[in-house]
Design a binder for these strands. Sequence first.
DNA 1: CTGAAAGCGCTTACAG
DNA 2: CTGAAAGCGCTTACAG
Lengths: 349, 349
Amino acid sequence: MARRVTIADIAAAAGVSKGAVSYALNGRPGVSEATRTKILAIAAEMGFVPNRAARSLSVSSAQTVGIALRRPARTIGIEPYFMELISGIEATLSGGSFGLTLQIVGTVQEELEVYRRWWAERRVDGVFLCDLGTSDLRLDFVADLGLPAVAVGGPVEGARFPAVWHDDVEPSRDILEYLYTLGHRRVARIAGIPGLLHTAIRDEACAETAAGLDFESATMVHSDYTGEQGAQITRRLLSSANRPTAIVYDNDVMAVAGLGVAHELGLEIPEQLSLVAWDDSPLCRLTHPALTSLTRDIPAYGAKCAEVLLTLIGAAEASAPPGPEARAFSVQCKPAQLSPRGSTGPALV
Amino acid sequence: MARRVTIADIAAAAGVSKGAVSYALNGRPGVSEATRTKILAIAAEMGFVPNRAARSLSVSSAQTVGIALRRPARTIGIEPYFMELISGIEATLSGGSFGLTLQIVGTVQEELEVYRRWWAERRVDGVFLCDLGTSDLRLDFVADLGLPAVAVGGPVEGARFPAVWHDDVEPSRDILEYLYTLGHRRVARIAGIPGLLHTAIRDEACAETAAGLDFESATMVHSDYTGEQGAQITRRLLSSANRPTAIVYDNDVMAVAGLGVAHELGLEIPEQLSLVAWDDSPLCRLTHPALTSLTRDIPAYGAKCAEVLLTLIGAAEASAPPGPEARAFSVQCKPAQLSPRGSTGPALV
DNA sequence: CTGAAAGCGCTTACAG
DNA sequence: CTGAAAGCGCTTACAG
């Protein structure tokens, strides 16, 4: 059982005060170069690592950020999105020696409670807000608390903190025009959860684009993102009188499920049906044919979110509580790019 | 911007000392029932939540456990396993008001560094060790540190801390006998990473079982669990002279990829090829046909792991450093159950 | 440039 | 049963 070394040990070994050790360790003035070098050497030799709790208590900073995920236990694993996001966040955090605290919650109320507790305990210095809703309780709640946050998604109207987001309008246009060019005139989109911000944005953009192209039909059905619903809605769409020749899915999981249904019905892909997945992940390349997708770099996205949060925390520490200038930190990322693969082809019907 | 309340605020409001407040809050003797009730009421009214750092510093416990995941950023999302495990862990933790710190690392060395830092910083009270290797550096490292840990997997020989694991021998037998009974005589298994403990256990158990049944061939190929390798190895196996009529995959991702290859080659499933996925997840029900799997309840598994770690931490606090009695905490979970679905059928070749 | 001291917000022996 | 005090391990004004 190893022993933890404290600044008192170093001070004793170096023959200086604890204060001097602290100054030396933190690169602040107050010690001569000679003593600094000596102290640093001793600290390194003794394998000193500061006690987090003591440091946090002194500087009122947890050196930790938090993320709360609201998903049922059994379905959270299937979405590659979150783990990719988290791994991107981590990439930025490790550099700044920040930790990440993760909590899975069931309801918004629970989520709000978690934020309040984290804030009250000073357990985190800031949080990531995922799955933004069209009117999202959490925004004001967290801002009122004075807890720094970044919205993972957007754009957010009158935000009191920064958002990191992708434009979904352009991809909406891209995908519909792509299908139109391939000759598809009956298209459907199995959209995500209606209350979500990006669902609403896609809904509107798709409707607008569709209106500008003379589709025979452009259907839209909301879902809960699960494979079950993806399959069920696909089955319904494909058994309708004038079935679509192309279906766009708001996530990869539903697209894979949709492909399964197409196989089950004996449809040739893409000859009889084209499929597109919004959000790319390795999952899309697992199937045959591989799924045409709208690709974003999620780990890079997570890294950017973390960058913005760290900046905000630094700023919030330096100056006043996060004010309107927080918006200035917002960053819009490159929109998703269409990656055509085997699941889409000319409409032959 | 809300304000944080401290025990000093409560003490002032109640007209008692901070010590009395602490005793009352922690349900310890030292205050009369009357004052206790009064203090509790005031604390509740003021919305008191103790500052973690201060508490941690006093009691030398972080009220946090840690998990380090060693996976590349871009592939970590695809394995539903980790998120399911984490969500199970969380379910237990939230009850005990413990937090979970997550870190993604690239190499074992990095992982060891993380444990050392967490321990030195007193950032966590214990850790989960995932992806156990056949000879695993981390076991002694963490034990030498005196950092409580539970091995997520096993069994571990001469462990200095508890393991929570599933028997893989029985499922190995189950699956091969099942395929044999269906008439399959040429089977293959695309195994996981060779250095992993459970890969080794499955390898041995499968070899032994196969030896007892008169298979014409029972091939085994190691992989890295990715869809790419799953696909590539499947393609190679299926284009060999005496191709297998059934393939078992060590995870669900490779099985899905294998199914993609089978579709690509125009094979009828299960008429011309049976496929089995070791480790079930919603992914297995997304495809057509759905994949026959070896099912375990991963969230429940995670919950059990957390339970054991919390017990260990409690014990470690109460008594000496985790000694040999730690083994007593080890728990063996119910082995994976075979869930036959559409991807397996009688061998017709 | 250096040392001694106070303080962060808790917990916990120790006297009354 | 209660209060005053010391201590956890840091940081940071404040005197010398």
